[in-house]
């Protein structure tokens, strides 16, 4: 589904991504782990075209590097940013509607689906995005991206700042997304959720992938955890 080869990215003169290589197969949940500042979010931003990429990003066999962000999105790649980017002046419903690339887009997710999974969003459908809670914002931003019917979705730090019950809900939603055949690249700091729902994991350090394996590989390798994940 997605194959990233020798991906480099820069912020001004800072060389942030220094040759990232990773793969995500259809319907697979893959986690990208690592400490703050190692380039996990930049990897997502670069795949999305929000940071100029140097290297190759193959999606369904087609080169994405060089496309504009809206063109990347229209190819079927979705991105849930860490900052959520909720539009504060628009209502919850309008935020969701903007997730659709065209008016009345028919996809795997409908607004009714979203309101069934998260009744709270349904109850607050006419409330402005700027006035809902952090947890509701997180649900809204994931669901808004789903409204665009992506085949591959990158979710950046979805559980950051959320209460434990909300974290579980986010985990369930990600599994539901994968269950509908959508590939997921999950950027996480919380090892527990990543180990629970991922099929494979990558660990980033110093702008490149330093480890690739399964949840069991990480559970059994204390050295890797100590060197690249623990603070």
């Amino acid at each position: 589904m997605l194959e990233v080869k020798e991906l480099h990215a820069y912020y001004g003169r800072s060389h942030i991504l220094q040759g990232v290589n990773l793969k995500v197969a259809r319907g697979e949940i893959v986690s990208l782990l690592g400490r703050n500042g190692v380039g996990r979010s930049t990897t997502c931003m670069t795949i999305m075209g929000l940071v100029p990429p140097h290297g190759s990003i193959l999606y369904k066999g087609e080169e994405m590097a060089g496309l504009k962000p809206h063109q990347v999105a229209r190819k079927g790649i979705g991105f849930v940013p860490e900052d959520r980017w909720i539009f504060p002046g628009l209502t919850v419903l309008q935020n969701l509607q903007l997730g659709q690339k065209r008016k009345k887009q028919a996809g795997r997710w409908t607004i009714d689906d979203v309101f069934k999974i998260f009744p709270r969003l349904g109850e607050r459908s006419n409330v402005h995005g700027g006035l809902i809670s952090g947890g509701e914002k997180q649900m809204l931003t994931i669901c808004r991206t789903l409204m665009g019917d992506p085949d591959f979705i990158m979710i950046d730090e979805p559980t950051e700042g959320l209460a434990p019950q909300m974290v579980k809900q986010v985990g369930d939603l990600i599994e539901e997304i994968a269950g509908r055949g959508i590939s997921v690249l999950l950027v996480e700091q919380k090892l527990s959720i990543a180990l629970k729902i991922s099929k494979r994991l990558y660990i980033m350090g110093h702008g490149k992938i330093v480890f690739e394996g399964t949840p069991n590989d990480i559970k059994n390798d204390q050295t890797i955890r100590k060197e690249w994940l623990e603070v």
Binding site: K68, P69, A73, P81, Q97, G99, K101
Partner: peptide, 25 residues
């Protein structure tokens, strides 16, 4: 209108609107 919503959204997060598949330029 839909274009009006896109304009309103782009007032705060143009990169977010772009990443949703709307041609912000």
């Amino acid at each position: 209108t839909r274009i009006g919503l896109i304009i309103q959204a782009a007032l705060t997060h143009p990169e977010g609107v772009n990443a949703l598949g709307h041609n912000v330029p």
